[in-house]
Design a protein around this nucleic acid. Structure first.
Lengths: 239, 239
DNA sequence: TCAAAAGTGTTAACGTTACACCCATGT
DNA sequence: ACATGGGTGTAACGTTAACACTTTTGA
């Protein structure tokens, strides 16, 4: 009986979202030359060290991935299907990557958000690419499942704390940009005019002097998000 | 480098909520005679087996705890502080419980809900007691921390899916009972009269013929919750 | 001048809040 | 009779939704 208890490796995997200029959600996928011939895209992740908490491991992975120190991160689910690492290719890859036989592996999945124009400076991966969520290829392990769950989770997150949406937008943004992003993240439809009126009525959405340039229509005003004001009286977008 | 990767035991711990007749949230705590002299209350939990998924382990723990087969359960967080199992008493307890040296242990915490009048038929524990959340004693490991987080989580859960609140109520309930429970689980204040009107307007809240007995005021009607109707048009309590 | 989107204004519908009022029951 | 809570009605208020109208800009 007692010998049946699991004694396992544990990893973290990070789903990093970005919002591109064609109004699509994207996810960061990585590749390394070292992975040839199993070379294929995957979610960034790592086994956790013996004296490391999972949150710290996720922070480390995110830093190795982007070069950014403090990214917003949220643990959302532990994936522990006993067969999740039983694919032949995946087993080979693990042996190569970790230089030891690994039987079973559990992973704790994290969600993170990144402004898509932010420079990505990876110390670990050779290739780090944004991939639109509609074009995610078949990934190793249960990474496709993790991504599907993360989509549910990011939507829930926006409902709970609207302000995290600004992590995905440039510092200066137009209300249309915010509208498009909100549309990509929420089931609820709002008329853009009414959205405009509502958003601009919030005191934590601060109008800037700057407006768009070289657009073939009336230029939109840029706005910024003021986190301090938001914290004082955080209004839900939809009551 | 490679030898530094964690290779660890993993457990699940279950926070089971109940709602008592004094309108207090309660949590199930357990004790076993075998635990003497370290005997103390703790959250129910178990190491997971080598061929077991975490969700299945939680289901097993809940069944061993209550005798109930299919309880509502929700994974809410992995706790992996490297020092969470470093207390001397906790280490001794683990040796006794699992008959092997255990260095580090991660746990995946689950939230579950139970009608407080349901008969508890534990196959594993000698003592299973409801404990009001205001009277939770000091518990081993990080169980107090887990409970604190579970309170945040259950509130979030109610916001996302109002219907789970009925898992905590008897099958027949008065609107006042529902109101008290909602008050214990939500920050939002609603006037009881308006709450009554709103709730009774929902078609998934079905009025029964039965009314209260032996109360020193006008007897309240009993209602039941119809999950099928709810699923068709799930209305949020507060938009 | 046209197309496209910014931005403002108006109104009706809807939901919420705050009470007033009557009902039923045990003490 | 009174206290306590059940249950219904209503009017004021605030928010949302739908849409008309004006403004700005490039082609």
């Amino acid at each position: 009986m007692t010998q049946n208890f699991i004694h396992t490796y544990v990893s973290v995997d990070c789903v990093v979202f970005g919002f591109d200029h064609e109004n699509r959600l994207n996810i960061l996928l990585v590749q390394r030359h070292i992975d040839v011939p199993e070379r294929q895209k995957r979610l960034p992740g790592s086994l956790i060290f013996s004296n490391e908490d999972v949150d710290d491991a996720a922070e480390r992975v995110l830093h190795e991935l982007t070069g950014i120190k403090k990214m917003v991160q949220k643990q959302f689910r532990c994936f522990a299907d006993p067969l999740r690492a039983s694919n032949e290719h995946d087993i080979k890859w693990m042996e190569k990557e970790y230089k030891q036989q690994i039987d079973r592996i559990m992973t704790v999945a994290y969600l993170s958000l990144c402004k898509i124009d932010h420079k990505i400076n990876s110390t670990k991966y050779d290739t780090v690419d944004w991939c639109p969520i509609d074009e995610i290829p078949s990934l190793p392990f249960d990474h496709n499942k993790i991504i599907n769950e993360s989509l549910i989770e990011i939507r829930r997150w926006i409902e709970t704390d609207f302000s995290i949406i600004f992590e995905l937008l440039p510092k200066k943004f137009t209300i249309r940009q915010l509208y498009q992003l909100y549309g990509a993240l929420s089931e609820k439809y709002i008329d853009i005019k009414n959205f405009h009126k509502k958003i601009s009525s919030f005191n934590y959405i601060v109008a800037l002097d700057e407006i768009e340039k070289n657009v073939s229509h009336r230029a939109a005003r840029y706005y910024k998000f003021d986190a301090k004001i938001y914290k004082k009286n955080n209004t839900k977008l939809i009551k």
